[in-house]
Design a protein around this nucleic acid. Sequence first.
DNA 1: GCGCCGCCTGAGCGGACGCTGAAAAGTCAG
DNA 2: CTGACTTTTCAGCGTCCGCTCAGGCGGCGC
Lengths: 225, 225
Amino acid sequence: MRILVVEDEKRLAAGLKKGLEAEGFATDVALDGTDGLWMARENPYDAIVLDIMLPGMNGYRLCATLREEGIWTPVLMLTAKDGEFDEAEALDTGADDFVTKPFSYVVLVARLRALIRRGAAERPAVLEAGDLRFDPAARRSWRGPTQIELTAREMALLEFLLRHRGEVVSKSEIIQHVWDYDFEGDLNIVEVYIRRLRNKLDRPFNRNALETVRGAGYRLAADGG
Amino acid sequence: MRILVVEDEKRLAAGLKKGLEAEGFATDVALDGTDGLWMARENPYDAIVLDIMLPGMNGYRLCATLREEGIWTPVLMLTAKDGEFDEAEALDTGADDFVTKPFSYVVLVARLRALIRRGAAERPAVLEAGDLRFDPAARRSWRGPTQIELTAREMALLEFLLRHRGEVVSKSEIIQHVWDYDFEGDLNIVEVYIRRLRNKLDRPFNRNALETVRGAGYRLAADGG
DNA sequence: GCGCCGCCTGAGCGGACGCTGAAAAGTCAG
DNA sequence: CTGACTTTTCAGCGTCCGCTCAGGCGGCGC
């Protein structure tokens, strides 16, 4: 079992290396993002422990880049702050799990073991419906060749619709997934955001990807309209 | 895929149930530890979402008990406080993963998915009777190659008839399943909607899928007419 | 053949639903 | 603090759909 640790803080990196080797893992260390990316590309690691804050190239970008290149080595992210935003972002960029600093050794190793047992994740790099594309890692979207600027919410909605393309999804389902599970407001917010997406993705191109299914919800045409 | 949610906070439990069901998981809820344990023992769940703070029996003990009894269903723990102590303890008692409250929906589902051994994502099958087809997920229906536009009610009725194709279903059965359980109006409404379906699905194609069985109800021909 | 009862049919009403523009509230950087 | 931008709320409006109703048709028993 071979592990790559990408961590710039030398004391921590050395500690991890020693500890993991004691657990029986062959361990390599990269001290910045650029080196980390290079090593991850060159060697078939069983898992990568990846700090988010890195000189050279941050952990998010490193992970996203690997995924774009079709490298699905399990990634365990180390995040300094806590809070769900980081977690969600880590998972979105293709990390498989994360541990919040400061962490205990026991937890890290347990998580790492679980990750390796599970094996490489398989997550589609980009979501598509016809010429409508969305890259969750890069947080970019296109209609054909032209890139579309979307806000965070708009992207979240588009991503959800793309993951269920061809299916009808109700407004309350959308609320549950795109907003917080305990969202208290009016379902009308969904209509408002659907309209925004239409204005950006359909209207300028004279297309009709976002269909209303009265009494049921919305459907993103599987062929992108 | 069947999930058990053990959570005493009713709003959260209801939200989780609804959301997970939207994701295609059959979801049961237990509101305290004792019930949770009982249900986990009785049913072969694919995963258990388990709050730590519970009336009756706390999450740690519940999980430990299951493991002692040789039940190894994957457990995802919900922990209110954060800090490594909880995490380590959760992992020690046999939990496979944990999420710290408050969590976002995205994170929870991602973790849950990771936990469950990835089976093929299967959309609910298309319902068919001869060349008459209906896709419940996409909310679309076809007669042969041509797609038929139906309203919400019309679809609900068609779906019900398709699920009972070849059988005679009475008007009151139809009312009970397609309309609200406590529908107060006239049974004539069924006749009206049967007519609408005939106008859309049979007449244009010179077919006769929807048979009237006088005094008994209606039957959708198993071969689509 | 006759009448009754169950089913069919067309039209119309009222309300639910979704759409829309704008303004208020919240968020973030400088 | 200010200003730009995003998110959310709100209210008006038009359309569509679910339901009712009343009259017509036709099968079935007598």
